[in-house]
Design a protein around this nucleic acid. Sequence first.
DNA 1: CGGTTCGTTGAGGCCCATCAATCTATGTGG
DNA 2: CCACATAGATTGATGGGCCTCAACGAACCG
Lengths: 260, 260
Amino acid sequence: MLEEVQRGTSRPRPPSALAGTRFLSAFRTDEEQQALEAAALPVRTLRPNTDLLREGEATDQLHILIEGWGCRYKTTRDGSRQIVALVVPGDMANLDSLLFGRPDFGVRILTAAKTVAIPCDAALALAERHAGIGRAFTRLALGENAVLSQWALCLGRKSAQQRLAHLFCELGRRLTGENASDDVSFDLPLTQEQLADTLGLTSVHVNRTLQQLRGEGLVETANRTITLPDVPRLRDLAEFDPAYLHCGTVDTSALSPATT
Amino acid sequence: MLEEVQRGTSRPRPPSALAGTRFLSAFRTDEEQQALEAAALPVRTLRPNTDLLREGEATDQLHILIEGWGCRYKTTRDGSRQIVALVVPGDMANLDSLLFGRPDFGVRILTAAKTVAIPCDAALALAERHAGIGRAFTRLALGENAVLSQWALCLGRKSAQQRLAHLFCELGRRLTGENASDDVSFDLPLTQEQLADTLGLTSVHVNRTLQQLRGEGLVETANRTITLPDVPRLRDLAEFDPAYLHCGTVDTSALSPATT
DNA sequence: CGGTTCGTTGAGGCCCATCAATCTATGTGG
DNA sequence: CCACATAGATTGATGGGCCTCAACGAACCG
């Protein structure tokens, strides 16, 4: 921790692909952020429906999504799929690869996307040198943990309506950072089948459930955009409490009021 | 193995409650282990069905289970419960509390149990000083992550039979470290209702499903002990692959059957 | 011996899966 | 511009896995 790691501290450098991403803002100090940006590999552009990582395929890179959507998924022998995480811009797709050689899931890019990779060994070395980076990795892992726990509750104990509503609440919060404002709208490039694979349902039933939500004025869809006209009511139906998304734009304000 | 070392190196200290636990062995060097043991608070003895942590209740301690079983759980408004993690001896009950003040789950002790606590600030300070400790925390979080992902697949896409079989396979592996030996037996102090809350089922259906598994010779129960007479067949039914339990005693042996 | 917890069994019903068809939008090549 | 192909959304009919309600048996215990 005594040596100056980067030459970039004083010199102007081209704005890295990570600049401004939610991923980067998980790291608190400029020094840490610059160290990470220096370790990042060039941007990759990916087409829809490409596997960034096949199930069980080893990798030595961490992938951060800059643009587009992806997912982590697992499959069963009979071919049915469960999406275990939706990866949106600013998310890391495979944090597990940092410490486990062989991921037990696949990572698929769902839309046109751009990613940036960081070699695992570089990331590990940075975590070793900067305690803040190591802690940020732990925080990211624990954050995924909280989302997965919430999904377990939804998958195990909630109706199709509630699951769908909960997912929309979660995405609204993660994507727009909204805080129960009454009207939220965002791009949702998932097919009904992908929604079904996320929620543990079939696409047919997702379709019918969506119609119910539309009929009750809780959801509007147009093109690939979804609008939530009455977030409070949707949250009530889903029993959604954003506290589990420890991240989010306004969360840290609880710790130090000097943000935003 | 080479873990006999923990108290001999310097001063005679009373054998800590953490000595020999799986939790402690997640930390690689003697120095790290001794630092953690020094930070541990006295052992607490707990009675069955006590809440170590109520849902949403803040805490400033990490709790490690020494003896007995516990669980992390979440509930819905109508009172139904989903167990999101089973905590067995050597597990940390609330790693999330290390970085998130308010856990989004409850922790309940299910049997007579003993726990040891470590103050969060002490743990954070240790992670700051020893990079290995920080990395071990990340590894623990990612391990929980892998288990939760697997549960999501089970809850979303598997039948009651498969879920039950999968849980038994997982517990057999975590508790006995077995590696597909044909006969495994261990103590299972969970009621059928607790199994149901783990698997997203009702206790009635767990009961009927258990009878099916018993009828097929895949499971035997006596007292609070469960025996798996034919682990390979049970694994096949559950589509259980222990690779996701990155921990375990013989993990590397499972890595390379096909690649030579 | 009565109370409590847990396991077991039965009857009935609903939520969601399954199978299959139709409809729409988009794109492609002739 | 149309024929055609494809992906995705929509709708209907049918069935099954699991839930719900309810009761009873079994083990434990003060």
